[in-house]
Design a binder for these strands. Sequence first.
DNA 1: AGACAGACCTGTGAGC
DNA 2: TGCTCACAGGTCTGTC
Length: 271
Amino acid sequence: MPELPEVETTRRGVAPFLSGRTIETLVVREPRLRWPVDPAWSENLAGRRIQSVDRRAKYLLIDVDGAHLIWHLGMSGSLRVITDGRAPDKHDHIDLVVDTGHCLRFNDPRRFGFLLFTQAPLAKHPRLMGLGPEPLSEAFNGELLYRRSRGRRTSVKGFVMDSATVVGVGNIYASEALFLAGIHPRRPAGRISRARYAALADAIKTTLAAAIEQGGTTLRDFSDSDGRPGYFSQSLSVYDRAATPCPHCASLIRREVIAQRATYFCPRCQR
DNA sequence: AGACAGACCTGTGAGC
DNA sequence: TGCTCACAGGTCTGTC
């Protein structure tokens, strides 16, 4: 599920249950995530106080007295707060138990997600170095896209999905933002004007901000929630809408593989 | 440096 | 019902 809006929604949902709490244990039922989880971290974590729950790109960052947990949801991961002590389900790989008796429970069928523990400064962490700006920050704008794209021959879709360009633009929102900006996803990144990149930066911000807002309404209850909500599909213009009419011109939406991923666009509105 | 293919792993839905 | 296949929201690594 997780693109940036889902990760941010998760952060907002779980932070109130964690901030200020003291960690009791880390329960590792399945250490084989993308990178192995070391159950011995539990001893080091026990007694540490959770100072904050932040996000950088699609990484959740939990500050535990100066050390850090870095949590990534991968393709199929989710986090929720368990307050009723219920037994874990299938694929509930990890619990972070705090002193209220609640726990943050990680479920991930595909195990592409990961949890890292580090006592080194986050700024030097290899997973976080080299990341581009946050899409909703002022540092991200059309001028940045324009400058970084000069000489690049890769598709604009691949370019905006590259975390060195800007973080948090995943496959769904890349298609959506390019549609909103009227740019063909296969167009070479280096051959797009300043003005069009200004429109694309705006479209990325608009699309992500709207999705976060919806996440806030559809995913509000992060404790004990059972069902995972659908994917805001009602508000998507082109993603997963192949062969249905474009909302602007009624041409049929196309699906093609671009930048090695399924890509949806209107062949008439996007040039 | 930049571009691409392949890798990780399980679940789901389509088609037979 | 049960098999096989294609495909799925991310990102790292290796190779040219």
